[in-house]
Design a protein around this nucleic acid. Structure first.
Lengths: 162, 162
DNA sequence: GGAATGTAGTTGAAAATTGAACCGTTGTTC
DNA sequence: GAACAACGGTTCAATTTTCAACTACATTCC
């Protein structure tokens, strides 16, 4: 079907699906971000960082790990944490057993901010996504996103898998 | 179910789906952007702009309309177009019948750049999305994204609709 | 026709992001 | 144990994005 040098174009159907996907993506992100910023005083990424920390043992996480968790570059995380630090939401602590490393630690104030922001954000997520879907559709969405979130196409089951 | 002042939290299932969604979103965007930048010398947004123009009659579009089409702010579009203009991909033309307005016009060079970038990008989209899904799954994805791309929850059919 | 109001698009400065270069530490290899 | 690669994290400069004015034209309404 696909020959060397030839590229199989997207079908009309795929084209439409792809554009819907892009629009849905953009819409969800910008709306939730705007909402969260307004009601909770946080960015979507900042929120993600605080959540990750709050769920981690000792409310702390190494920078590298945290960067992977929230899917941002090392550099960006450094800046992000600096801002959160000067806002009092996070504190940096040197790592005992690896003197290159630092812990990003959620402060009480940060936890408070998070708890304050969470209900509104959850409501927004519901309104933007889950309230629109039947349970079956949520399942379908979960299945699809599980496939699409994987970076490496090699480790995949599925139609092209066998 | 939902009482005043109370917020219904996400179920475990929803939580997992939500995180998958976020990761899939981020993964798709950053990977396709990186790829497109490397092989085509364009940003995902720039690509979107050129595509929109190429498909519009006269290869041109008013700024406002274009901004809506590619889902960026007016301001950002101005800058974006300025860059594309100084790269020779786009040209601005004053609008005859509305002297406030401008056309963003795709140049031949821009069209060429686009055509050169497209195959690689399409291949990347395939690899990142469609090759991983069965036709039935593509249909399901399309249905879901069609629901989620809509901004205004009011104009919705669906489970909460009646 | 003229005052008010809305719309198209730009500007400019502040803030955020990127990417490469960098520093100090850790791990590995011989 | 010395040399060297790899890692964790920051820094700096360049680029991009954002947000709030702002200009100029268009539209409305009396």
């Amino acid at each position: 079907m696909t020959r060397m040098g030839e590229v199989e174009w997207l079908s009309d159907r795929e084209q439409r699906v792809w554009r819907s996907l892009l629009r849905a993506q953009a819409g969800i992100e910008t709306e939730l971000d705007r909402d969260l910023r307004r009601t909770g005083g946080l960015t979507l990424v900042e929120y993600g960082i605080l959540v990750a920390l709050s769920e981690s043992p000792g409310r702390r996480m190494r920078m590298r790990r945290l960067a992977e968790e929230v899917l941002v570059s090392k550099s960006r995380l450094t800046h992000q944490i600096s801002r959160l630090e000067s806002a009092g939401h996070v504190r940096r602590e040197p790592c005992e057993d690896d003197r290159r490393g630092f812990w990003a630690v959620l402060t009480d104030q940060g936890a408070e901010t998070l708890e304050h922001a969470a209900p509104g954000h959850v409501a927004a997520v519901r309104g933007r996504v889950f309230d629109r879907l039947s349970p079956a559709q949520v399942d379908a969405l979960g299945e699809l996103m599980a496939i699409l979130e994987i970076d490496d196409p090699a480790t995949l089951p599925g139609p092209s898998g066998t």
